[in-house]
Design a protein around this nucleic acid. Structure first.
Lengths: 304, 304
DNA sequence: TTTGTATTATAAGCTGTGCTTATAATAGTT
DNA sequence: AACTATTATAAGCACAGCTTATAATACAAA
């Protein structure tokens, strides 16, 4: 009975471990060592007199009781978290951690961030970038700016996924290259290098060529694969052929004449933009300020 | 953010303090010092940046936020507690804490408890007695055996209140006294001392006399007030007049000829018996064993 | 008033839980 | 077989979170 107190912290860790199916990930989310989580789970299982996890090879599964406890914990902690957040709702000043793709952070966000910081000096922004969809909870991220077609499906339960516009995808090359070679019709692109992502998702060259009515791309040899769109654009700026990218990423360079779109055929798939965040976060007020700024900024900058 | 962990224990204490409207009572339920609770509530209020309690004179009230947090905590901890109890449901062996009136424990339960202990030696019974209705949660009591008319209303939320029979209330006196004086009709009782409880509730002498069609009791002078029914019966056994009591309390002495019921007019109110317990307790299996025994025992012993 | 009782608040200091680091064990992967 | 990524176990230390002690407060009774 006197262990009831301790159980609460153990349950908090249990919920986390069960959610990740991993002690290590739980440990990193909780900012404690893996050993601590391991000990806690041992204690909890001893206190309850039941196994909660079973280890099948490398997999970490929940027993029936474990599953029941996990669901109860999520429900209970959800209720508490929500209520606590409502009570302690923070003001505008403070920190905010944001994540997005490498391309977006490097090419769009970072160049414009000083504007935001000038307007809201009391909000301190921390920017992360990663190619995959991070676990927002584990990484303590307040906002993810995500792109594509599968964002809604990949949103963790409990998080909001807010659509905020979309962009067409065009093939672009450097102005210099366009002067050297002539690009008028889609098949002209096959004269030069084509830069593509390793995991292009829906925005791949084959779809664009098919859409443009070209099949000769199948015999094309000069491909360059890169890891992220900002690398692709950097290559292209230096004259390394064409890449496909959402327009807002290079609107600046088009205006300055650095990049050109000699063949104005959009990719059949547009890039939809989403804001993913926890609507119950204590930082919601601050977050809304940032999101509002982001939306107006992205709209006005793509108009120009 | 790193305080989120600690908050859980703080919230557990908060729920308790808010439920009792008292730090001291919470401390005793939680088996920690009052000072600890006071510190915890200060910490919690600091962490949330809001007052949770307001002190109006001697009263300890919840602020609006405090109230919200209290409700959320109750809900959340209820979910957890229930689930944990289901998982760790204890077996038959173990301890059980029981409370009832002084009279019931002293006159009925204790004399029969050895029978139970012989049959279930693996169950260790701890018996408390108190005149008022204790707070089962605060005192960590597993079962209350309660009597009267207002039991259902006074049951804490979340607890079961199970009816298990009733008894008539008669005036009794010692056999010796009945030999000395003649008791045939109700008014004969006024020849001797009448023992009554300080707080007789529904089972008082006036009601009995009125029911018996007697009003002369209003002029009766020889009253003796005691604090509990077992004191009353002890007095009566020694020849100190009559008292009113539920039959099962002295069935033994009637059989042995020690006590007699010369005027067989029952009190208009019968004593209803209730078992009050937490249906979600981890000890529920053990508890059911005891309650089952209690019911059969009380039925067979009142038959004989 | 004063005195007494029952609270909560605050201070200071000690104890033992719950971490950390380090290392072993295990399983899957190349 | 070597390597990587886990979880398990051991040992030892630091500081969170108690305890005790005392002050402050509020009310009730004399």
């Amino acid at each position: 009975m006197e262990k009831a107190l301790r159980n609460l912290n153990l349950l908090r860790s249990f919920e986390c471990a069960a959610r990740h199916h991993s002690y290590s990930k739980a440990a990193s989310e909780l900012y404690i060592s893996q050993a601590a989580v391991s000990q806690q789970m041992r204690q909890l299982e001893a206190a309850l007199g039941s196994q909660l996890f079973i280890r099948k090879g490398k997999q970490m599964l929940l027993t029936q009781k474990g599953q029941a406890l996990f669901e109860a914990s999520q429900q209970a902690f959800g209720i508490l978290q929500k209520c606590v957040n409502e009570i302690k709702e923070e003001g505008i000043p403070g920190k905010l951690t944001i994540t997005s793709t490498q391309a977006f952070t490097a090419l769009w966000l970072m160049p414009k961030l000083h504007k935001f910081s000038e307007k809201y000096p009391e909000i301190e922004i921390r920017v992360l970038s990663s190619s995959a969809f991070d676990d927002l909870k584990q990484q303590h991220i307040d906002l993810a700016i995500r792109f594509g077609t599968s964002v809604t499906d990949n949103t963790d339960p409990g998080f909001s996924c807010e659509y905020f516009g979309e962009d067409p995808v065009y093939p672009v090359c450097s102005a210099q290259l366009a002067k050297t070679l002539n690009f008028d019709v889609p098949s002209d692109l096959l004269q030069t290098w084509l830069v593509s992502l390793e995991n292009p998702g829906a925005y791949d060259w084959p779809s664009w060529f098919e859409h443009a009515g070209i099949t000769a791309y199948r015999e094309h040899r000069r491909w360059t694969q890169v890891h992220s769109t900002d690398m692709a654009l950097n290559a292209v700026v230096s004259g390394h052929g064409f890449t496909l990218a959402a327009r807002y990423l290079y609107a600046q360079q088009i205006n300055s004449g650095q990049l050109v779109m000699p063949v104005v055929i959009a990719h059949p798939n547009v890039v939809k933009r989403y804001l993913v965040f926890d609507p119950n976060s204590a930082k919601i007020a601050r977050l809304r300020v940032f999101m509002q700024w982001l939306k107006t900024e992205i709209d006005t900058s793509s108009e120009s």
